[in-house]
């Protein structure tokens, strides 16, 4: 072909571009197929099993409920037997336990932390203050509930909740993960 004829050729008639588009569509479909296979077969159970027993929370101790979170991580109510271990940076954590009242100043930072966590990520709202404002609901500087700006998976009520209640909340989260699809949570 001459150069002018090549230039006048429509882009979707270019055989290499058509082949590339076709491969893109096929790879997209292949990706969907992989998702469907992983979600339907026992592979889902294996992946969910890995996620359930290694929920690593971010190191944040928002307000007073952190005293009971600390007690829950301690010797008698050991949270590590559920795989919950605050280790390392927040980029490699997948659980955020919002312990206590969320102030306006802290809310922005919590959103920043949530955005930096690795997907899939889960949020437990621990304590009455993070569910609805709790004892401080008519204060001028707090957000009445963390669900106003973060998607919450499990609510653990109490002021503060006992360590046993927090363990129950983690078990509920594990049940939720066990029955969810691998690729659905963001």
């Amino acid at each position: 072909m001459s150069a002018s004829q090549k230039a006048r050729q429509q882009p979707d008639e270019d055989p290499i571009a058509m082949l590339a588009d076709g491969i893109n569509v096929w790879i997209g479909k292949l990706g969907d197929i992989v998702h469907t296979i992983v979600d339907r077969t026992p592979i889902r159970h294996v992946i969910n099993w890995g996620r359930i027993y290694s929920l690593w929370p971010v190191n944040i101790t928002t307000a007073c409920c952190s005293a009971e979170f600390g007690a829950a991580s301690g010797a008698r109510h050991d949270l590590e037997r559920f795989g919950v271990l605050p280790l390392g940076s927040l980029r490699q954590s997948d659980l955020m336990v919002v312990e206590g009242t969320v102030t306006n100043k802290m809310a922005k930072r919590l959103k920043m932390i949530y955005d930096q966590m690795a997907v899939p990520r889960y949020v437990i709202a621990m304590g009455d203050c993070s569910i609805s404002g709790g004892l401080f609901h008519d204060s001028y500087s707090i957000v009445n509930g963390v669900h106003e700006f973060l998607p919450v998976d499990v609510y653990v009520p109490g002021c503060p909740p006992r360590p046993e209640a927090l363990e129950q909340g983690i078990i509920m989260l594990q049940e939720k993960i066990r029955s969810s699809k691998v690729y659905e949570h963001t």
């Binding site: 102030t103 100043k105 004892l135 401080f136 008519d138 204060s139 500087s141």
Partner: peptide, 29 residues
Amino acid sequence: GYVHRGTEKIYELRNIIKNIPVIERPAII
């Protein structure tokens, strides 16, 4: 200020018995 909950304003809105839990929360342990 990250955990400032404005308790001094709340104390003026609750009666003296209902203030007891609010007084306790700053240092919960």
